[in-house]
Amino acid sequence: MLRLVLCTQPRSSLVAFGGSARMRPVEGDALTRAGDPMNSQTRTTLVLTGLILAFLALTTLFISNLPGRPLRQPPIPLVNTNFLDTATVRRSYADLVRAGEDLSDFDCYACHEKGKPPPLRYDTNQNLIVPKEHSDIVMGHGSHGRNNNCFNCHNETNLELLQTRDGHEVKFADSPSLCGSCHGPTYRDWEAGAHGRISGFWDRSLGAAERKACVNCHNPHSPHFPSRPPAPGPHPLRPVATASVEPGPNH
């Protein structure tokens, strides 16, 4: 059918490609009127050649699929395996004992004298002066520097023990019960598994679960959870403008 139309309407090839039979005579007449038959034939040839070239160009574009090719991406580096580490932020006394590691930090009487409570010294603002032997300790437990007495938690007569405010002696390995003597609701949550880390098996009939102690995450002298660098975010396909949302009121 297409060939028929093409053959019978030599001067209206443009329209024939469009397939509109109605407009053929009009267009044909216009072309014929525009000049002598030879001239119009040359024009038709020109238009046809142009069309063929255009089609070929489009075809090349289609096949090479230039616009559809994904953008060349810089390789995404593999994430640092530090971020895959499941270890806790700190290691508790119990962890050190279990790993059979150096416990010299807990050997108080290597330096201190037995039976003699170490003296506490304060500056004029009633801030505890941390002796240089304990320079790694930052006194940051509680706000406004109010918790400034070592023997709020340490047993002054036996430095290898802890004690609650009401005088109960607590071993280093049982430190959560000392923490719980002040932080009751948190301790309750921790016991129920709602606060703190548990790892291992959720189904205790299939395997053991390990509940991490308070000191696995919190430094008892400065318990605020430490900030840390975040793992890399998603690598977008195109550079993104980071939205600037104002931080909210700090609650």
Partner: peptide, 26 residues
């Protein structure tokens, strides 16, 4: 990452890249 005091997902940002987290106010 959402600003404190709202739960508007429209204000969420997931390309945050500060030096350290958590950031104040989020």
């Amino acid at each position: 990452r959402l600003p404190h005091g709202s739960l508007d997902i429209e204000k969420a940002e997931h390309n945050y890249a500060p030096e350290s987290v958590p950031e104040k106010g989020y």
